[in-house]
Amino acid sequence: MATNASRAAARLMISPAVVLLLGWMLVPLGLTLYFSFLRYNLITPGANPFIGWENYYWFLTDPSFKAAMINTLLLVGGVLLITVIGGTMMALLLDQPMWGQGVIRIMVIAPFFVMPTVSGLVWKNMFMNPVNGIFGHLALGLGMEPLSFFSEIPLLSIIFIVSWQWLPFATLILLTALQSLDQEQLEAAEMDGATWVSRFIHVMLPHLARAITVVILIQTIFLLSIFAEILVTTNGGPGTSTTNLTYLIYVSSLLQFDVGMGSAGGVIAIILANIVAIFLMRMIGKNLDA
């Protein structure tokens, strides 16, 4: 039972966090929105006139925007596909009785803790380098021509690296969900003569559905912002073949110093992320009532 005094104290305790987050959200957001309507380039000093929707027009009609959107979709979609399917299979496997499960689990989880710049550079140099990388050596050993990953399949290579980083996350969450499954339910299904496949489809998958949704939504939020892996491997190239939306905005704002254009891109990125966020928030909100 909360008294009025304790309510007042509670408000006081919450307020620093609220004020900070409100400022963190409103100030940059407002400025991004404001800049997006200005002709504002850091190289050309002087007045920054209001130019309406011009930045949006140029940003949206630039061919690299279309390329970046497609790359973003492929990157997010590809990584989701690999990590959700791979993660489900890994989780099912790790849920089986085996020796040394703890050690195997630790090995599977490790990539998640490797910082993005390290995983980008390690895959690029030690594995995918056609001359000195392991894949190159393997190809030569098998009598094949080594593949030059970042010039021939640049986006796929990045999808692969990012999937390696996020597979542990999907595995870990799906494994946690799987372990909360009622064992008796499974045994009952087994006694009724259900095959492994039908047990998976009718008992496990419905139980996992919620966790899979959470994995998809949370990963999407992070995957939309992939940056470091691209910066250290391809710099968005060759051409724009590995430029995602985040990287495109980085290029126009911090490399070309076009604050107005970058801000217009930023606003578009925010709108896209919000569409995903709405679904995620609903899922989490439901859980709060439970």
């Binding site: 309510r7 959200m25 957001l29 912002s225 985040t246 930023g266 990125a269 909100g285």
Partner: peptide, 29 residues
């Protein structure tokens, strides 16, 4: 000391995490 609005406050706090960093990079910079 949960109040009626606690849930909304929590959800709102979470929503700030959904803001893509690149969307606010320029102002912060």
């Amino acid at each position: 000391v949960p109040a009626k609005r606690t849930k909304h406050v929590l959800m709102w706090m979470l929503s700030t995490k959904m803001l893509p960093p690149v969307g606010v990079l320029i102002p912060i910079y």
